[in-house]
Design a protein around this nucleic acid. Structure first.
Length: 257
DNA sequence: ATGCCTCAGCTCCTGAGA
């Protein structure tokens, strides 16, 4: 089973690239973030034609998430039960016995800001809910745009970006708290090139200079950890003419193991 | 650098992203 996550920064703009990518990378599940469109504008038919089913949770202008699946997606839940939120950030479904959570974590803008406080509350809400979700569904994948780096290895210039958004101790505390629930960073289960990033600023030739961050992650539960066969960041679509600023992350599980 | 680039929308500037 292959699963992937990709922040597309507007599905309206990126749909052709998503379809091209799916044709070249026929994954079982693709979690999308930052659709930036309302539910009525979701290009459901295009995915159907490509042989995929869709579950989506859109919002005007900002946010919006979807799960694109080869097979059936059951027991769909939108956002975090028990956490009141007016933004469309999470979509969850069961696919082939695996509970799949696709999430667009808040950006937070700047430490100390109102948006940063919201990010902290959201992270707490996510953790509280995941704790019970993991009891119900031991086979769980949490993937998406976390907007948090684990440590300095995820940052192109850790000195210059120390304590800035995505790199603060408060954010990293919450990321470690998710790990403490019994989750594992798929990418780091395997050796990686130094400076492996999933996002690069559009400005100042960020991608060309590899000035990026690793903020898109795929975490797998204890039960799935021994079944992870591979994980990689696919930088190919970042080389497209009008790319998203994020690259897809892909994980391969062997569920027969 | 109050910049750089990209996207959506109360669209030709502004807010937000990261």
């Amino acid at each position: 089973m292959k699963l992937a996550t990709w922040n597309v920064n507007s599905l309206n703009v990126r749909l052709p690239q998503v379809l091209d990518w799916l044709a070249a990378n026929p994954v079982d599940v693709l979690a999308l973030q930052e659709l930036k469109l309302t539910d009525d504008k979701f290009p459901h038919a295009a995915f159907t034609e490509a042989g995929y089913q869709s579950q989506w949770f859109g919002q005007k202008t900002y946010n919006g998430v979807a799960l694109i699946t080869r097979g059936a997606a059951d027991d769909v839940v939108k956002n975090i039960p028990g956490f009141d939120d007016d933004m469309a950030r999470v979509i969850t479904a069961t696919v082939a016995g695996v509970r799949v959570v696709g999430a667009y974590f808040p950006n937070g803008q700047e430490p100390g800001s109102e948006k940063f406080d919201y990010k902290m509350n959201w992270l707490k809400g996510l953790r509280d809910w995941l704790k019970t979700e993991l009891q119900t569904y031991p086979q769980l994948v949490l993937m998406g745009d976390y907007n948090i780096t684990f440590d300095d290895d995820d940052v192109w210039d850790p000195v210059a970006l120390k304590d800035t958004i995505h790199c603060t101790e408060e954010e990293r505390y919450h990321l470690r708290a998710l790990i403490a629930l019994g989750l594992h960073d798929s990418l780091r289960l395997f050796p990686q090139e130094p400076k492996s990033f999933s996002w690069w600023d559009y400005r100042d030739f960020g991608f060309r200079r590899n000035r990026g961050l690793r903020i898109d992650h795929i975490l797998v539960s204890d039960a799935l950890k021994p079944r992870v066969r591979a994980c990689h960041i696919d930088k190919t679509p970042r080389k497209n003419e009008r790319p998203s600023d994020h690259a897809p992350v892909v994980v391969e599980l062997d569920l027969s193991a």
